[in-house]
């Protein structure tokens, strides 16, 4: 049984079909990438899985349970935690405080939450910043804090929404091993990303979305050679010159 099975999920906003009968399967332990041009519906798909809004139709089975239409906090309790494309730290609070909020998903006690949070921060190399107010962090640090908070909830599946967007190339190369390290601890990851190089590097399997529809799926090499994908990213004429 797959960890996550998305079947024919559709999301309509009044007239607009943002996600159109999208299906995908994620096996436990994988890193799966979802790519597509701007406005392709990647984040909307994410929001449907994470419960931010219910899909118009279709089913999302996680760990054998139907989770489509559940509220975000219920989704998290099932074991799916997401990060946000636009980072949302609890700005007036310290890094440790932020991470402890996540850790309270696992425990009722303050000192245990602190213990879990510190472990996560050490794992991500943020522990030296633990007493810093999160609004004074740099963008790469905020992105890492976003990861720390999500990891502290001990998810089975981590949904990463453009964790690398806005980072400089050198910061991207720093982020890649962190994501791989998280995956190695047994956390399955679905990652939505713009930066092709990053996602090619990380993912075992890639889904390409355009205009809300899945246009290709497969391993990174197959996907980049796909005509539809090249069309979506570069335009029709490039398909011809390829041959």
């Amino acid at each position: 049984m797959s960890l996550l099975e998305v079947t024919k999920v559709t999301k309509k906003f009044s007239g607009l079909v943002a996600v159109n009968e999208f299906s995908m399967t994620v096996e436990a332990g994988q890193i799966v990438g979802v790519i597509g041009p701007n406005g392709a519906g990647k984040t909307t798909l994410f929001n449907c899985i994470a419960g931010a809004f219910p899909p118009t139709s279709g089913s999302i089975i996680f760990n054998g349970q139907e989770v489509a239409g559940k509220k975000p906090y219920e989704i998290c309790q099932f074991g799916i935690t997401r990060t946000f494309q636009v980072v949302k730290p609890f700005a007036s609070k310290s890094v440790l405080y932020n991470t402890m909020v996540g850790a309270f998903a696992q425990t009722q006690h303050l000192h245990e939450a602190e213990h879990i949070a510190i472990e996560v921060l050490q794992f991500l190399g943020l522990d030296h910043k633990k007493d810093i107010v999160s609004k004074s962090l740099t963008l790469p640090e905020r992105k890492r804090l976003e990861l720390a908070r999500a990891l502290a909830t001990k998810p089975k599946l981590l949904l990463l929404d453009e964790v690398m967007a806005g980072l400089r190339p050198v910061e991207v190369t720093e982020m890649l091993p962190i994501i791989r390290k998280i995956n190695e601890t047994g956390v399955t990851i679905v990652i939505v990303e713009h930066i092709m190089q990053a996602i090619m590097n990380l993912s075992e399997k890639i889904y390409v979305v355009n205009f809300g529809k899945k246009i290709a799926e497969g391993d990174p090499d197959t996907v980049v050679a796909d005509e539809e994908v090249i069309k979506a990213y570069l335009g029709d004429e490039y398909v011809v010159t390829q041959h």
Partner: peptide, 9 residues
């Protein structure tokens, strides 16, 4: 940050 809080359960 209500949205982020809900995502954390």
């Amino acid at each position: 940050e209500p949205e982020a809080a809900e995502a954390l359960g």
